[in-house]
Amino acid sequence: MGNELHLLTEEPQRPTMDIVAVHGLNGHYMDTFTDKSWFAPATMWLKDLLPEKIPGCRVMSFEYDASVNSMSVANVRDSARSLLEHLKDKREDTIYADVPIVIVAHSLGGIVIKQVFFGTPHRGADAAQWALMAEKIGHAVFHTGQSAFLRTLERNSEDLYKISEDFRPISANYAIVSFYEEYAYNILGKVIVDKDSAIMGLPHEQKMMLSGTHTSMCRFSKSDKQFDAVWKRIKRAATGVSRP
Rank of each mutant, 00 (worst) to 15 (best):
N173S: 11
S216L: 05
T213R: 10
Y174F: 11
G240E: 03
M217H: 03
R233K: 08
M200D: 09
V177E: 04
G240D: 13
K190H: 11
S171K: 02
M200Y: 08
D196T: 15
A184C: 06
A198M: 10
K235Y: 09
F179R: 03
S223P: 13
M217K: 10
R219G: 00
K225F: 03
D194S: 04
F179N: 06
K190S: 14
L188M: 14
K225S: 02
D194P: 04
S197L: 15
D228M: 03
K225M: 02
H214E: 01
I234S: 04
S221P: 08
N173I: 13
F179E: 05
N173V: 12
A229D: 11
D224F: 00
V241M: 06
K207Q: 14
L202G: 09
Y180N: 12
A238S: 06
M208T: 09
R219M: 03
S211T: 15
R219Y: 02
R236D: 15
G189L: 11
G240Q: 14
G212Y: 02
T215Y: 01
R219N: 03
N186T: 12
T239E: 15
V191M: 12
I199G: 15
Y183M: 13
M208D: 13
F227G: 01
I187M: 10
S178W: 01
D224N: 00
T239V: 13
C218N: 05
A229S: 10
D196G: 06
V241Y: 02
G201K: 08
R233S: 08
A238F: 11
L210G: 04
R233C: 11
S221L: 00
N186K: 08
A229M: 00
A172E: 14
I234Y: 12
P244Y: 02
S197V: 13
I234M: 07
H204Y: 03
S221Y: 01
K222D: 07
I192S: 05
K190C: 12
T215F: 05
F179D: 01
M209R: 12
